[in-house]
Write a protein that binds this DNA or RNA. Structure first.
Lengths: 355, 355
DNA sequence: GGGTGCGGTGAAAAGGATTGCAGCACGCCT
DNA sequence: AGGCGTGCTGCAATCCTTTTCACCGCACCC
């Protein structure tokens, strides 16, 4: 049916072994012969049968990407990055949508993990225990946007993003800041909340009003917008661009002007941030790079085939230090000077901006 | 390393053949023995090696999905539907992003098509010739959002969506309609344009101003917005929600009020449509269902393994008729009565609405 | 009572690529 | 001249599952 290595070998007048080496380990074959084999292979349109190769090498040439929600622009962007980098490395990507469900996530890792060379697990919703269990399996695992003892990971500098946003608002004169946090149990929300309080503590006269946990979607923002107004804050940081957009939408429809009455800052710089008026000031996260670096880290961390595991004496080497990517505040139109003048001239407090 | 069928067979005291049958063809094995084998397999945590199975059956258990842009909410939603349905059928999905490039698209179909049971090709950018070539390969192909001779496809009723939008605008009193079309060569744009002219022709006094081809992204909408104003149209149909949002954004920032001065209608009902104010009137496309039906059609159309192709005498059977999904106009806040009063009372023209 | 059919089982081949090991030839060194 | 190293090449095993074919009793029918 399809052209096999045998066909190529026969046509080229060599053994299958030599044909295989001519294509995979060129330095082992005499140059003239090597070229001849390659030419024959190309002419016949030979494509190695991946199943047969996998069977003997234990490598599938596939990576698996598990995300909570493919439609969320954050994950879509990461997926795009993963996909691009994997293709450059000759790998295919199997994607799975866990529908924000930790249990399904675990199951997917178990089911798909067995048939791929590595799993990129994005913003895992699963518990620490489930993660431990998944790590105990013999498939290389890489976490995006979450750290976990013993696991390789690629994360963004959550706290620094918040710090930049706070510094920006502080410089504009804001002193009372509301925070619309992410879902309870979210690792990145915990990091951001932590960073928020630390940044605020280093800036004299700053108060933080915590509005609690908000569903990380548009409607979550709509729901929390009234709390923002009631809190008396002049600016609000949202966990997420989607939440920020929800807040923006509700404030505007209530007649609260943005940024004249209230400033709004998002997080992620998803494409939707520029779709609205006023355009959203937000923290840009290098989403595509997050995906690319995840693939690189996964491949470097576990270059060996899943099968050859037993050979390496150590249990599982040591998990490398997390890769931490920088983020960058993007100032657009949703932030401005607060309605009440700042309590002190900006110049006199500039020295207090956190490093 | 991992537990194989041999292990199960030995442990259960049967031959590998019987073990295989106990799991895959239960009716061929005596009930008592069958249950015993299954129990042993479960207890040992046996998982069949997919590569070995693929090697002999020719089936991979994988589908491939090729989309122009994973970050586009339209394709993200379709991908989600494809993924969900595939999982329900026990299939994995390999996704590939063609970056809106027809050549890359062809290459991906060629490269990935060889290692999957079928390919879902979404809004193909490739030419008809390239499509023919891809069809000539022996991998089942299913087109989403495009029809092509000899290919199975799942499409939406493009023309009817436009018809509904036009009827809505006509009923509101609009008579001069602008159309911001999709990219040149887009199959669905051709269908919509066709439907637009037919709908307009059936409504007396209606004019269509064609604004040409627009890049199907936010910036495309921004760029074309001024043409809308200059055209003197009281309403504009965009090829796409993203384009509609761009138009909306530019109009608003120019001081043109929506819908008081100009009504705007999008297409797709992507999540972003409700993120803005005014919320976008748009044509809702059953995106997830598009993905699910694509998988179903693909699986039904090509239930046999890729390998067993030669057996079926006919060239490739006949491609089944395209599955056509209905669409539905969703009226929100971006459409309203035009500034100039309608030329005739609404009641008197209601009978002229196209069917 | 022997042939026949059938339910159930096992031996063995097939599927395609990779790779350890052995062999071969040739050239160089002593 | 003989021995050895080296550079290439081929043989054959291996990966794991599925599936064909043959076989073996046993029951049933003639």
């Amino acid at each position: 049916m399809s052209v096999t290595l045998q066909d190529v070998a026969r046509e080229a007048g060599v053994s299958p072994a030599t044909a295989s080496r001519a294509l995979n380990a060129p330095e082992l074959v005499a140059p003239a012969r090597r070229e001849h084999v390659r030419q024959v292979a190309a002419q016949l349109g030979y494509r190695p049968n991946r199943a047969a190769r996998e069977l003997i090498t234990g490598r599938t040439g596939n990576l698996c990407l598990v995300v909570p929600d493919l439609e969320n622009p954050f994950f879509a962007a990461v997926a795009k990055g993963v996909q691009a980098r994997a293709r450059a490395l000759g790998l295919a990507v199997v994607v799975a949508d866990s529908e924000e469900d930790g249990h399904l996530e675990s199951e997917l890792v178990g089911r798909l993990g067995a048939q791929v060379d590595g799993v990129v697990l994005c913003s895992p919703r699963m518990t620490d225990e489930a993660l431990d269990e998944a790590l105990a399996r013999d498939v290389p695992l890489l976490l995006v946007n979450r750290e976990h003892h013993g696991a390789a990971s690629v994360v963004i500098d959550n706290a620094d993003g918040v710090r930049q946003a706070v510094a920006h608002l502080y410089a504009l004169g804001h002193r009372r800041l509301a925070y619309a946090g992410g879902p309870a149990g979210s690792w990145s929300d915990a990091r951001r909340r932590e960073g928020l309080h630390r940044a605020a503590a280093s800036l004299p006269g700053t108060e933080v009003v915590d509005l609690g946990h908000v569903a990380p979607v548009f409607d979550g923002g709509v729901a929390v917008a009234d709390l923002v107004v009631a809190s008396g804050a002049t600016a609000v940081l949202a966990h997420n661009d989607l939440v920020a957009l929800g807040i923006l939408n509700r404030l505007t429809s209530r007649g609260v002007r943005v940024p004249d009455d209230v400033s709004v800052v998002g997080y992620d710089d998803s494409p939707a941030a520029t779709l609205v008026a006023p355009a959203l000031t937000t923290v840009r996260v290098p989403l595509a790079r997050l995906g690319r670096d995840a693939v690189d880290a996964l491949v470097n961390h576990a270059p060996r085939a899943a099968r050859r595991r037993a050979a390496s004496g150590v249990t599982d080497a040591e998990a490398p230090a997390p890769v931490r990517l920088p983020v960058e505040l993007v100032v657009r139109d949703s932030t401005g000077v607060p309605p009440a003048p700042p309590t002190a001239p900006i110049a006199s407090t500039a020295g207090d901006l956190p490093a």
